[in-house]
Design a protein around this nucleic acid. Sequence first.
DNA 1: GTCAACAATTTTGTATACAATCTGGAAGTT
DNA 2: AACTTCCAGATTGTATACAAAATTGTTGAC
Lengths: 218, 218
Amino acid sequence: MERKRSDEIADTLEGLIFDGTFEDGQRLDEVQLADRFSVSRTPIREALQKLSQSGLVEQIPHRGVFVRQPGAVELIEMFEVMAELEAVCARLAASRISDEALEDLNATNARCALAVEAKDTDGYYTENERFHAILYRQSGNSFLELECLRLQRRLQPFRRVQLRLRGRLKQSMAEHEAVVKALEDGDGLLASNTIRDHVAVQGEKFHQLFAILKPAAE
Amino acid sequence: MERKRSDEIADTLEGLIFDGTFEDGQRLDEVQLADRFSVSRTPIREALQKLSQSGLVEQIPHRGVFVRQPGAVELIEMFEVMAELEAVCARLAASRISDEALEDLNATNARCALAVEAKDTDGYYTENERFHAILYRQSGNSFLELECLRLQRRLQPFRRVQLRLRGRLKQSMAEHEAVVKALEDGDGLLASNTIRDHVAVQGEKFHQLFAILKPAAE
DNA sequence: GTCAACAATTTTGTATACAATCTGGAAGTT
DNA sequence: AACTTCCAGATTGTATACAAAATTGTTGAC
């Protein structure tokens, strides 16, 4: 499967923005990037436009594109929306989910538990993402599923950071189990509230972390 | 305020897709469009990429971009998500809304009523959009507000069609008033449920309309 | 010394030229 | 006759060239 060069570049740039190589407000010079990737300006511009649509950079006509890292307030807002979207997924899933998917959720949770035991953060992270992805799918609404995946992807780097907090992994797992339990009981409201808190707490935890890290960076 | 030519083209193309000039599955030929707009392929490509990100067209590498009109199922899904997002806005707004904004909502509703009297569909539509926009804003979450506006914009052409249905305008107005009432009482749950039904019914109505119009088009 | 206007440079936006890839059909083989 | 191969045409993706706009630096007047 061949992809376009501009797509690869978009992915690479996305990574560079996520990991902080490009800091907030920095202008991304087209010719510099073209030189760096050994291509012309054309695919660079296409890549930047794609990032602009995702909200990772801001494009100002005749002035250039600038990295746009979300601030604390915006992050909290995004986590709030993520929490609400997942809550919707859970409520809808409660009446639409299949037995097979419930089984799948349990299996995923079991693998999560193994990863926690083994202190395998990466493994936990993968399974965690899978857990949420199943939930999105089981909302029975493909459009909602896609929107959730989109936002999840956007928040990915920030979710990851806060998993380091002591004891968060075990608590997170317990919350997952509570969600599955509620879904098994067909209790949409409970499932909805549980997952909302589960996600919202991540935003709050991140906020704390942010408050700690920010002064240190200056 | 100077805009880029490619942005204008994107808007124009969006309109042409909305009003059905380009039908579903049709390939959008770059050179043809370039000729039509009297520009080179470059701004055309930029415009098409933008539309691709919005989901109005699908871009298949080395094959071209194709118009992608949402089918009945996808539309219902989108309306369901819109309903849920607005429900979230209402719930959040119930505890965050300002007296001033409440006043604004009432004023907008009053103008809606006038438009209904005058059979001014366009006027009603404008005020209706404003009503919802205020609600998004009063969620107190800018990110949520933007997401709502984005989806609203996407559904715009389909919302408009279903307003023609007999008696829908009056009923819609009554629902608006019920939402404001609930917000004034600080009853987030009621406001949430009311607005959800208000939006969801639009999706259902549209579905009916779709079922009627579809056979006629063939 | 400060501010304003203007020119030079840099950078973005668009046009054109070229390369890579896909589509469709004709020719040839089994 | 059906299937495969390969070539020609068309179309997308990328490179380069040019035009328009903005930033920056300099000069000159007050």
